[in-house]
Design a protein around this nucleic acid. Structure first.
Lengths: 147, 147
DNA sequence: CGGGGTATTGAAGTTCACTGCAAGTCGAGG
DNA sequence: CCTCGACTTGCAGTGAACTTCAATACCCCG
């Protein structure tokens, strides 16, 4: 195994993604491979970046559908460059910020709630929305993201 | 529909959880219902709190298995009080903090990465661990939580 | 007491992101 | 050339958390 093409096992080891997952990604149109005469997959080095991108995007909370769409927006006929990747990852920023905001609110509300004991009190606005906040709609909405 | 017992539709509306999910929770041992003579479920008001607890715990990232275990640790023969619920929700705190830490690291690393353009460079430690950080193991591990 | 909105059941289906398997083929080092 | 580990395929299965379905039964209001 030399030069610039990777077999599936090699790509798997270097990305930490199982071969079965790589085949699955290909079937889903997320990555692409050329074939040897014998029919084995060979990946370009660029695929390392694509696969890492996929894993990180998953961390950010994107579904494979969304990731496929994002990858689809990359230029098809040249190797994606710095700006191409930057555009995609920049678009994650609001998403990460939003996730952080939700978690912080959850943490803060929970702290307050623990302090006041309202997790157990019937009047608690956090836990008992049906009694106190039913007009805003159902669910424990104070904690689940309502301002 | 009066007094202190809720039909499944009412519990559903007040918690924002579908009746099918409530039946599922019961089958999974997360909540409990008494029955009318005709066989319909009737829930006590306390169930509102249990269901809200379940939804919030899910937000925190617990599986239903873990939630069942937590609920199981509540006193069986009296209505859970402030301390009971407080104990459970306090145990979430480290979990939330850990999630926040992961997200913050992801955001900061991504910012740095966008600045230096490494999302597209072969030498990038974030995206190209196989070339630069293979000794630490596979995967885009700098971003995925390794210190 | 009648009507219709609400509830019952169990089993099967759904989505997501893979994983596992069997039976056979490839390809690089010796 | 031989060998043996790596690779191929399609399809079925996994697990989490529900949802859907169909046929039937209930129960509150007027």
């Amino acid at each position: 195994m030399q030069a610039d093409l990777l077999a599936i096992g090699e790509l798997s080891e270097r990305t930490g993604v199982a071969p079965s997952a790589l085949r699955f990604y290909e079937a889903e149109g997320l990555i692409h491979a050329t074939r040897t005469d014998g029919g084995q997959r060979r990946y370009t080095r660029e695929t390392l970046r694509r696969v890492s991108f996929i894993r990180i995007a998953q961390q950010v909370g994107l579904s494979l559908d969304e990731i496929r769409e994002a990858l689809h927006s990359l230029p098809a006929k040249r190797t994606p460059n710095k700006n191409d990747w930057e555009r995609l990852s920049t678009s994650w920023r609001p998403r990460i910020d939003a996730q952080l905001a939700v978690l912080e609110r959850l943490r803060d509300r929970l702290d307050g709630c623990i302090g006041c004991g309202c997790l157990s009190l019937q009047v608690c606005k956090l836990m008992n929305p049906g009694d106190e906040a039913a007009s805003r709609g159902p669910g424990p909405r104070y904690i689940l993201g309502d301002p």
